[in-house]
Write a protein that binds this DNA or RNA. Structure first.
Lengths: 342, 342
DNA sequence: CTGAAAGCGCTTACAG
DNA sequence: CTGAAAGCGCTTACAG
């Protein structure tokens, strides 16, 4: 465990010079630098992050906050994207899961006094006013990824729900569907996740396209804690759709996973997709192409990268040209949609 | 940004007492402790990890090393499992990707001098002798997850390939298949990943069950850099299987994803699965049930948890009863296997 | 149970 | 370009 001091002795220079040589900062002659680096390598020397951190005031650590497991399609991809950028920039990425409102509350309460992060990326979380206020007062940058609103964040990366829903409605309209609907996911009672955002956008788009209220169906997300399992939620939702008077001939579902599960549920009771019910998903995840699902494609790896690029720039004191990025999704046409009657 | 000093002043005690009270270590009267905590909360005080770390010599940081992206089915799940345990124990989990042998080399070279980790989990990596030597000399624990061998590691968590392949061969045998084969994934030329381990186990199991060399086929994994894409590798492998003289009637494929891709490739050229070719996968990942794939189920979230429990115990100075855990897979029967001729 | 003091291993003005 | 010195904010024997 060589220390910087030993490197200095062996290299015959002062500790200050070793520090400057190793970090490539400050003026050091090329010759000295090379020599110091050579000695450091020989001794397997690595700077102590804790000591550097304490002395410099920078932790070189960025935390990424989730409310769900890390191994969901979106979260894992966002993590990967952020990792690529942060590791390149020399920062450690520390994932963190805040599962309950109580935990979230505690996390935010300590944020003002937390000197253990240089920046943070907050994923898919809807903030309340207190939290927005805390973020605004923070001296470190906070970036909202898949943020529901820009309030409080130094920057955000989001998908354009309005445009996406426009594309979805347009497709269904062009295929001749006169009665359409939107299906929300089960709600996490602990977080104000915004299915509403997407469903609202769908409804607005439909109205704009001339759909009448009577021809629009909204299948609201029920409290997920009411269900024993994902399958239960799927069945319950499928039943609501099936028993709906004047059932829509096409639906858009909040996420691919829910859409795919619904396709299976429909087929099990003899409702053909897309002949009897056309379905559009959202995500274009790993399973979508196998399920031949028509869907709106988003790229969470890239979103993770963008969010990380923003925090890095902000931590470096730069000003962002475009702090709030809104990404467009692209419609992927597959086999779960078809012209009505064909 | 309150410091421990301010908390001490406001609480009317010494800094030592604040430290002891907040960390729950050392003897402090219940009354003092409560008071200090109350003051700390009021000031939004959080201990500086860097300072604690520097003073105590513990970094409270565990790194998890991967050679592939974080958002693969296995890696994301392992990360999630490890996170659950480490966060509970107060450790930060810092993921790290080492993509090339050169990077890996550098990582290992610096390991002896690296004081920035209290422990590490190394995922799916085949170590060479030098690396094994470095790990052995390390003062911090290293746990191999999905390790190919136990050499160098303080502990490992692995899946029982021999037993798994035994189950696979037994199933095929019981279904009446007389010519069987194993299909390896494309090889990463940069890492000595061990498809060989699994394929070797398959071959051994088959010989034990009485299969003759002439009735055994091994489709070796080719250097993945030779292929432009995953699809290319799939096509090339499918061709080799199809054009094999005396083609097997059943194959076991190294992973589900490759197995599923092969199913599609086979069906495209009119080879029916399972009628003409039965297929068994390995993993039981997200897509397997949708593909109706018969497969060997492993649980990487649990493996991540177990690996993390081992590092935590070792970091706490405990001795493990069972440092090397070998997990059994379970055979999930689905639609890609069937009695021969039915 | 509590406090005074040394020290962890760096970085960074400051001076030259 | 380089060095001496102060200081970052804690923890932990040591003493009482």
């Amino acid at each position: 465990m060589a220390s910087l001091k030993e490197v200095a002795e062996q290299a015959g220079v002062s500790e200050s010079t070793v520090s400057r040589a190793l970090r490539g900062t400050g003026r050091v002659s090329a010759k000295t630098r090379a020599h110091v680096q050579e000695v450091a390598n020989r001794l397997h020397f690595t700077l102590s992050r804790s000591a550097s951190s304490l002395a410099s005031g920078k932790t070189m650590r960025v935390t990424m906050v989730f409310t769900d497991t890390l191994n969901t399609w979106f979260n894992a991809a966002a993590l990967e994207g952020a990792y690529e950028v942060l590791s390149e920039a020399g920062y450690d990425l520390v994932p963190m899961i805040v599962r309950t409102q109580a935990n979230m509350q505690r996390f935010f309460e300590r944020l003002p006094g937390n000197r253990n992060l240089d920046g943070m990326i907050v994923v898919s979380i809807m903030l309340d006013n207190t939290q927005v206020g805390i973020l605004e007062d923070l001296t470190i940058p906070s970036v909202g990824l898949d943020a529901r609103a820009i309030g409080g964040y130094s920057a955000t990366v989001r998908v354009d729900d309005a445009d996406s829903m426009h594309q979805a409605v347009q497709l269904l309209h062009s295929l001749g569907h006169e009665r359409i609907g939107f299906v929300e996911m089960p709600d996490n009672p602990d977080f104000l996740f915004s299915a509403k955002l997407r469903s609202g956008a769908f409804m607005d788009a439909a109205r704009q396209m001339g759909y009448d209220e009577n021809d629009l169906a909204l299948f609201e997300g029920r409290d997920s804690s009411k269900f024993r399992s994902f399958q239960d939620a799927v069945s319950e939702t499928a039943n609501r759709i099936i028993s709906r008077p004047n059932r829509p001939t096409a639906i858009c579902v909040e996420t691919d996973d829910f859409a795919i599960a619904l396709i299976y549920a429909m087929r099990r009771v003899g409702i053909r997709v897309p002949e009897d019910l056309a379905i559009i998903g959202f995500d274009d995840n790993d399973r979508s192409s196998m399920a031949e699902l028509t869907t709106l494609h988003q790229d969470p790896v890239m979103m993770g990268r963008m969010a990380a690029e923003k925090v890095v720039a902000l931590m470096h004191g730069e000003t962002l040209h475009e702090p709030h990025s809104m990404l467009r999704t692209s419609l992927i046409m597959r086999a779960t949609t078809r012209r009505l009657g064909q």
